[in-house]
Structure formats: structure tokens, C-alpha cells
Amino acid sequence: MRACRLVGRSRATHHRQAAPKPRMHGPWPKAQHPAELSPAERAEILSVLNRQDYANLSPTQVYVRELDEGRYWCSQRTMYRVLADAKMGGERRRQATHPTKVIPELMATKPCEVWSWDITKMRGPAKGIWYHAYVVLDIFSRYVVGWRIERIEDGQLAADLVQEIVAETGGNPPGYLHADGGAAMTSKALASMLVDMDITRSHSRAHTSNDNPFSEAQFKTMKYTSDYPERFDSVNEARTWMEGFTAYYNHEHRHSGIGYHTPASVHYGTAEDVREQRQHTLDRAYGAHPERFVRRPAAPPLPLKAAINDPAKRAAPSVHLQQPLRLI
């Protein structure tokens, strides 16, 4: 009997090993709740939420308005879930798209190729009273080619100023006139005048002061001058002060960006003679006492170009060299 039981058990074990039951591997199908919406119903609810007259409304607003029309689609919470599943939980209205702001890239290799201009405020005799200084300068020489001070900021005044400057320079307009995006800079009066004079206008990007660096630097030099008053008693006083400062800035101020020459010297082509004079003086000093110099002195070079957002600098990759660790 014992042998028979062993034999029977062995046969059963062999049978199980020979024909195992098939196993099911996931994923297991999700059981659908009786109250769950079908894909067709969800698509219909989504189309209702995205209707043109509902696109700017919240799902709660859509829910009650549909109830007022005698239609019930689902609960308010389900509407939110349908939008979330469709990744439309945010803004459903058509959004305005604006073109990417073009970075202004201007290059000048000599005077009267690119002018830059801007308007700065000057404090008047009392709080809330301001005078507006319109200043136009050549970016290559940093020479202030023209200015005016008025009680208001106006595009027609700016157009008249540019037209007067071109007439005083013998009818030789620049190729480009750069400014920021203020109301006077983008006015129709100035734009039409620039078209008539065949001057290409250029504008800075919004909230990007680096797009107009030359005018910003000139205003900083102006307002940090030692005799710049806290307030001006009248617009005539502001004009008188500006006239004296402009003469100093153009003919006496040695500008670091142009080899420490005056803007007038670079603008009118005498800077090369001045540099040679400086070099002769340095050569004499070196010849008299060479032991006082580490190397032969050289006068600062003249500028070769002036650029607003120089494309060569913007395209150059920044290389960071890792310095070896030195143990002391």
C-alpha cells in the first residue's frame, strides 16, 4: 500500500511538472466604474469647455451656465479633471504671440556712420518740474553733434533737432540713428523724417539699457560732473549750463573709450597727430631714463571701431581655463 501511494504521488507530481498552468502577467486591465465617463463623453465635455464663448471662463462658470440652458454634463470637479487630463488646466484662450525682439547690432568705423540719441530729465526749480535734455552723439567719436533742452518730451522736437544737425553738418546724414523705445523715439514725426533723409532707424529692446550704452555713458558723465546743480531755476539756466558742459565734453574731456582723446579730436581727424605727439614725448622720456620703465612706453591706440552689441563679441565662445591647484 505504501508503495502504491508513493507511485501515485510521483505520477501526480510528474503530471504537474509536465503541464503547468499558464500564468498571466500584468498590467491588469483596470475595472471600469459604472459612473465613469466614456472617452466619447469626455471628448464632448472638453469641446464644450473649449467653446469660443466659454474659453475665457472657469469650469464653474461653464457648469452653471450650462445648467441655465438645461444641460448637465458632469460635476464641476470632473470638468477640472477632464481639463487636467488633457493638459489644459491653464489658460484656454488664444494667446497673442509677439515676434522675438531683434538684438540691435550696429558698427561704426569712422565718424558720422551711427548716431545715438536719448532724452534725460533735469530737475527744475520745484518738485515735479523737469526739463528734458535731447542729446545726439556720434558713437565712434563720442562727439555730441547736437542737443536741445525743452519742457516737454515730443517726437516733433526730436525730428527738428536731427534735421537741424544734418543741415549744420553740410547735409551729411548718418547711416543709422539709434535710440531706445520711448514715445518720442518711435514717433511718426521722427520716423517719417528719417525716411525722407534716408536714415535707418534702430531701437533698443525693452528694459535693456545695454542696447544704448553710449548715450547712457554720456548722461552719467554729465550728471556726475562736479558742477552739475541739484536743481535748475529755469529752462534757460539749464540750457546755459548744458552749453558749457557740451563744450567741455567735446573739446576738453579725455574719453577712455577713444584712447583718452577728446571727442572733437577723433571726430575731426586730429587724433592721430595728437597720438604721435604723445609718443614722441614718451620716447624722449624713455631715452633719458630707460631704467625707470619696465617696457618701452606706448601711447594709447586710437579706436578702430565702435559697436552696439558687437556680433563678434557675442558669437565668441567663453573659454574658462581651469588653473592647476598649487600647494604652498
Rank of each mutant, 00 (worst) to 15 (best):
S256H: 00
H280Y: 00
A206D: 09
I119V: 01
M1P: 11
H251D: 00
E216I: 00
R295Q: 12
Q279M: 10
P34H: 14
G244N: 07
M1E: 03
A86N: 01
T240V: 07
V274A: 00
Y80A: 14
E276D: 03
N236Y: 08
V102Q: 09
A86K: 06
A298F: 10
R254I: 01
G26M: 07
A12Y: 10
R81A: 06
S192E: 15
L282H: 04
T262F: 03
R65W: 06
Y63L: 08
N56L: 01
M24D: 14
G182N: 04
V162F: 08
R51N: 07
V82D: 04
A40E: 00
F232W: 04
V62R: 03
D227G: 10
W130M: 12
I149F: 00
Y134Q: 05
P104H: 10
Q61V: 11
L137T: 04
A238L: 00
S318W: 02
H251V: 09
Q163L: 03
T120N: 13
R23M: 12
P34I: 09
V145R: 06
A108E: 04
S141G: 12
N50V: 08
H98S: 02
Q76W: 11
A3H: 10
D118I: 09
V145D: 04
S116T: 10
M107G: 02
P20N: 01
E237K: 14
A288G: 11
G124H: 13
T186N: 09
K121D: 05
A312K: 12
L304A: 14
V274Q: 04
R292L: 08
Y248F: 03
H280W: 00
S209K: 06
T200A: 05
A315R: 07
V294Q: 15
G124F: 09
S47K: 15
A167Q: 11
E164Y: 08
R42A: 07
I129T: 07
K223G: 05
H251T: 12
T13S: 14
T200R: 02
N210C: 01
V82Y: 00
A264H: 07
L327W: 14
K30C: 12
G244S: 04
S38C: 12
E168V: 01
F245R: 05
W147F: 14
T97W: 15
E237T: 10
H132Y: 15
D283F: 03
E44C: 09
A206L: 09
L177P: 09
R81I: 00
V62E: 01
T97K: 10
S202C: 03
F214Y: 13
D198E: 15
V145T: 11
P263C: 13
R295H: 06
F140S: 02
T13I: 14
D138I: 02
G8A: 15
G269D: 11
G8E: 07
R23W: 11
N210I: 11
A84F: 05
L83H: 04
R296H: 13
P303E: 08
A159G: 12
T208M: 06
A189C: 13
A217N: 08
Y131A: 05
M1H: 12
V62Q: 08
D227P: 02
M24N: 14
T262C: 09
E91G: 08
D283K: 07
R9C: 12
P297Y: 13
V195A: 15
D273H: 15
Y131Q: 00
P263T: 08
A179L: 07
T240E: 05
Q76G: 10
S318E: 15
E41D: 09
T169F: 13
V235R: 01
